[in-house]
Amino acid sequence: MTETVLGWWGVPLAILGGAIRASTPYLFVSLGECLTEKSGRTNLGQEGNLVLGAMTAYAVSYLSGSPWLGVLAAGATGMLLGLLHAWVCQFKKVNDIAVGIALMLFGIGVAFFFGKPYIQPTAPHLPAIGFGNWSDIPQVRAALEINVLFLFGLLLAPLLSWVLSSTRWGLMLRTVGDSSDAADALGFSVNGVRMVATMIGGFLAGVGGAFLSLYYPGSWNEGLSSGQGLIAVALVVFARWDPMRCLYAALLFGGAGALGPALQSVGFSSGYYLFNAAPYVLTLILMIATCSPQRTLTGVPGELSITK
């Protein structure tokens, strides 16, 4: 590409910007879900956590004037739903995936029920840091305008990775996720560990929702998430239960979402429905390419119902 076709430079720039802007919800939900799944439970209710978190954050930020209070409240609701999930799932013969779907319905229902009065008002937003201020090009500045939550996410991925691999708590979590019998024998509380992991997972998903409503796109409405929480759960499988890979997958997904509009903005405008589906097809292809029934996948928690 030569410098004369400046317009096309907008495409990689938009993908970079999109990766930074749109990846945060995927990142938080998938990191949270990664932790939950490492403990041996799948929580498809993350979509409900995300939506309820978005609504709660917006409502609290609007009522209190403090977006950070909104973020905390969103995390707290996610934690509550996570607790409910863990509590229901601890009973015998209860299927965790089904409970997740139920909680998704419930979470979305509660969010829509109480969210009606907050669709119209404008709530205070989360602040952003201008990392591109060195540049004279406004587009670069805008693309590098980075929200603090994204930075938290960036730090959280290696931190989680370290906790899982190198701390006592991480080892306990992985043991519980790999074999509840072994964990029992070691005297770990299987349900307790899973409950904590699901609650933290729910907290993170709630925070992801806060990002949606308080930063980007930055407004509460009923179509806000449209399945991002579900896709983030899919990303965990795709990332092989590795927090660092969750980060890459989230960035990839955020960037891929920006591809369609960016291509149209430089005049390439046919087949946008197919472009919009590109991230899903990509995930599918990568999953098919990397899965195999013969060998056990590295990193997969043995107790996980979605891999049995």
Binding site: G7, G10, L13, A14, G17, G18, R21, A22, Q139, A142, A143, Y216, P217, G218, S219, N221, E222, G223, L224, S226, Q228, G257, A258, G260, P261, A262, Q264, S265, V266, G267, S269, Y272, Y273, N276
Partner: peptide, 25 residues
């Protein structure tokens, strides 16, 4: 006038992405 079609009537994230790409142009 540069047009971007999002594909559906209510797609907040796509609409935000479209607005940002347009502004970048």
């Amino acid at each position: 006038t540069q047009v971007i079609f999002t594909g559906d009537w209510a797609m907040p994230v796509k609409e935000a992405e479209a607005a940002n790409s347009l502004i970048d142009q």
